[in-house]
Nucleic acid binder design. Sequence first.
DNA 1: GTGAAAGCGCTAACAT
DNA 2: ATGTTAGCGCTTTCAC
Lengths: 336, 336
Amino acid sequence: MTQQRGSGATPTISQVAAAAGVSKSTVSRAFSRPEMITAETVAHVMDVATRLGYVPNHTARALSTGRAGTVAIVVPDIANPFFPPLIRGAQAAADQAGFSLLLGDSDEDPTREDVLVGKFGPQTDGIVLASSRMTEEQIRAHAERRPLVLINRDVPGLPRVLIDTATGIAAAVEHLAGLGHRHLVYVSGPTSSWSNAERRRAVRAAGRRLGLKVSAVAARRSTYDAGVQRVDDILGSGASAVIAFDDLLAQGILAGLAARGVGVPDQFSVIGCDDVLAATMSPPLTTVSAHGGHAGRKAVDLLVSFLDGNEGDERRVLDTSLVLRSTTAPPAVRRN
Amino acid sequence: MTQQRGSGATPTISQVAAAAGVSKSTVSRAFSRPEMITAETVAHVMDVATRLGYVPNHTARALSTGRAGTVAIVVPDIANPFFPPLIRGAQAAADQAGFSLLLGDSDEDPTREDVLVGKFGPQTDGIVLASSRMTEEQIRAHAERRPLVLINRDVPGLPRVLIDTATGIAAAVEHLAGLGHRHLVYVSGPTSSWSNAERRRAVRAAGRRLGLKVSAVAARRSTYDAGVQRVDDILGSGASAVIAFDDLLAQGILAGLAARGVGVPDQFSVIGCDDVLAATMSPPLTTVSAHGGHAGRKAVDLLVSFLDGNEGDERRVLDTSLVLRSTTAPPAVRRN
DNA sequence: GTGAAAGCGCTAACAT
DNA sequence: ATGTTAGCGCTTTCAC
């Protein structure tokens, strides 16, 4: 009972077979295993197929083979500029491997995320979980039922791709120290974010190593507004430079600083993270590159290779580096 | 041949039926139409089902019913900031209606778009096409085979949601005229974009009506870099204000202007479109709001209502308006 | 190299 | 209210 609106129904493999004067199997093979049959036969079948407008029915194939031909990706917030490039990379890799990409947005809510992944499970071959906010137990439970690849979440035993912002952050702290800064402040992002924990830790460690004082300000949400709202705290900390959890926050901080007449980089230095908006800010933001697109692509590649029977606990670490632009300079005596 | 990694294979409806001592139909009904059978039976079946860890197979159900439970959305470029909110709206609406959302990125390429839509056709209940670059013929051909809803593309007879930026643009031109500008320039975006044609037309019409001179500069691609690169042409046109196809372009123009020491809004006024980045720029950009999120949501709602048997040619127009921020002011004598 | 036939797991008439 | 029986469109042994 294929419900069909619009005009003509999509032809099935049987109709193509009939029209081409061959069997269903031949048509099937022409599409899935062309090397198994004569080149002429393939050509003929293809010819008839295209003339009839035949397109293989993905669902039927999935039922028959047990492979859905679909992978899902779930992210905390599509609108956060960190994710679109990542999704784009995932979609490209999926497409290339012959998979379709199902998209889920958990709205930063672990519960919604849990439901979403549960729902996707039965209808996909595997799932990519980006910046998951779920507990390790929840994640493991899902991994038990379906192949799962994590992005920016380090759960031993599960395949995962990690963007190693820690090294980039360390370089950022060194850069600041080299410029003469003695006191800096880290503005943190989402509490349950692995990346945030990594970055906070990296700032602290580098600060300690270089003998800098490191203050902390919690922004919690990663938004422009949260950034501008934290400016008073940032200025109040007495630091001369700030490292923000991500570019979005840094952008807000930049605006807030400007609104208070604090010049960047002359009176205050700021460094972001991810390099997703940095090039388009004024002044252009010094930031830590993240290559979200690579991560998305790599995650899907890992998933596909896992589906092909390869290792299931690979831990891929992606490099980052500091990219210098125009928001850092030697510290200045603060006017008040 | 259900391939299964992770733990034990998922039980099928038959196994549940056997274990519960009922027929497959009863189990099926217990899940899909519980009101058709005794409450006790339902309870018993459910009990056995959960004990066995049974989960209905989405794919099998889809094949049997002809409804995939999935809708697809294809966009020209996920990374263009106009689309994430739109996708987010679509995903939310789909989720709410019980559908999963398949995502496709055509990379601004009509051919890729065509292939993508063709591929999604058989595995979805319907498709949302945002800012399609395909020809009207191609679109109609797809609409013939699958329910289709267009966003920002006006094809008579097909359901579509249109963001009426023309009225917002007209307001922008009036605003500029009111400020005293006599000559403005429109920086156009993608050639095959319906929105671009609408906006260009609206600028021209309003300019004529108000007796303003209107020049044009082609940016073609909607990117920050394209914006900065067009600044010489913009300045060379002799205009005192610019209206850009979208915020991305406007952002680049702002940066390019700043780089040349042209003050905004004192020496030059700029207005963007879409309101996707405008609030986070410095100075905050005056722009035309677009509400991409609404459009995404509305499109999926239309699609779902279409699938439920309602009208298939609705034309939904979404309002826009000019939002004044800080990039416009009366024209100044240009220093050179 | 190609065809025939048996399913994949589920739903939906049609009985009973 | 529940069971029986065909398929949905495709892949895949197994013959030829």
